[in-house]
Amino acid sequence: MVLHTLNASPNSAAFRDCLAAIAPGDALLLLGDGVYCVRGATPACEAILRCGAQLYALDKDARAAGIIATPDTVTITDMTGFVALTARYPRQLAWY
């Protein structure tokens, strides 16, 4: 099980590569520009919801970007939550 962190907009190679690498049981935390990937009712968001990973978005980055309404399956988390995730998943891979 891998914790993927994505810090890149949906219009990036990082976004495509990351989605292709996610396996069922993985988790995906969106931070920085990655939060745009869960703007509701966008093609990127649809793709993210289908990827099979547990989804998280960093609260401050989402708020800054104006991402206020996210799908229910996306958990909004803070730094403490991020740290807890890194403890829960033995492997972590950063996409940017």
Partner: peptide, 17 residues
């Protein structure tokens, strides 16, 4: 292929991107 890459990622102890 894609499935083999997914397996590879979950097989290693550390990932460095």
């Amino acid at each position: 292929d894609q499935a083999q890459i997914q397996q590879l990622l979950s097989r290693n102890d550390h990932l460095l991107g």
